[in-house]
Amino acid sequence: MKSIFGALSNAKPPVLRYRMAAFPLALVFLPNAAYAAGTTAGTTISNTASATYNDPGGTQQTTPSNTVDILVDELLDVTVASADPGDVTVVPGSTNRVLSFVVTNTGNGSEAFRLTANTSLGGDQFDPTTTSLVLDTNNNGVYDAGVDTVYTAGSNDPVLTPDASIRVFVLSTIPGASTDLDRGLVNLTAAATTGTGAPGTSFAGQGQGGGDAVVGSTGADGVDDGAYIVQNASVALVKSAVVVDPFGGSEPVPGAIITYRLVATVSGTGTLTNLTIGDAIPANTTYQTGSITLQSSALSDAADSDAGEFSSNAVAVRLGALSGGTSRTVTFRVRIN
C-alpha cells in the first residue's frame, strides 16, 4: 500500500513524473478487466471533499473542495452462447431446423449488434444451409414461426441495454446426403456495430453519453458453435414361408397351408414413424380368416382399432413408430387353391 501512494506523498502532482511526453505514440493503453456491465456509459462521476473546523472565534466552518467530474466511457463487450442442451437431432433433407443462441451485452451502454451465421467450419461431416436468423421477439425462448421476427443485417440489428440478452434462432436445411450420426456445425457471431477490434481500441466520441466507445476484453464480438446431428433409421423386411400339406408333409400342394412370416428390423439411431407392413395375398391362394398375428398376438381382420386388417386381398399391419434396434414380427396364413 505504501508503494502505491509513495509517489503521491510529495507535494507535487505525480503525473508529471512519467515520461509520457517522450514516447507519446509508442504507448498502448490496456483496458482493465471489465466488470459485467458496470456503471452505465455516460454517467458522470463527481467528487467533492469537504472540511469542517473551528475558526479562531470557536465557530464551526465548512469548506468544500472543487468538484472533479469524470465521464464514464462506453465499454463494448458481448458474449454469444449456444442455448441448446446438446446437439439438435435432425433427419436428412429436413428444413427449418432450429439452433438457439443467447447474445448478451456485457458492456455498459446500449449497443446494437450485427449477427452473422457461418456454416463453413471444420470438425464436422456436413455443412447445413442456413436459411434465416430469427430474433425471439416475444421472448418466450422458443422459435415461433411467423411470430418471431426474421433478422435482416443492418435493418433490425438487436439493440441491447447493459446486461440484457436476446435469444437468436438459426434455421437451417440439412443436406439430403447426410447419414446417421453425421454432425454439422453452425456458429453465430455478434459484433458491436460501433466497432470491434483488439481490447483497448477506442472510437472517439462514439460512446453512449458522449464519451468514447472502447473495446473491452471480448473484442466487442462474441461467437459460439451450435451443432446438428443426424439421427437416421432404416428398416429391413425379411419374409419367410412355412408350408404344411394335408398329409403331414411340407409339399406345396393344393390344400396345403402356407404360414408367411414378415420380420421388420429397424436399424440406426433414429425413429421411423407410421411404419406399416403390407403384403398382397399371392395368386392361387386364399387368405385364412383371422390368421394375422403381431408379436404372436392375434389381430382382427376388420379395419378397426387394432393394428391389423385384411382388405382388398392384402394384409396390412400398422407398426406405428419404431426406433432403431427394435423389430416386429407379423404372420398370416393362406391356403393353396
Binding site: 505525480p14 482493465n32 478487466a33 471489465a34 466488470y35 455498459n108 464519451g211
Partner: peptide
C-alpha cells in the same frame, strides 16, 4: 501511469 482523466471505464482504478 497516473493521469487526470476526462473519461474512465468500469474497472478503472482511481
Amino acid at each position: 501511469l497516473l493521469k487526470q482523466p476526462d473519461v474512465v471505464m468500469p474497472g478503472d482504478n482511481l
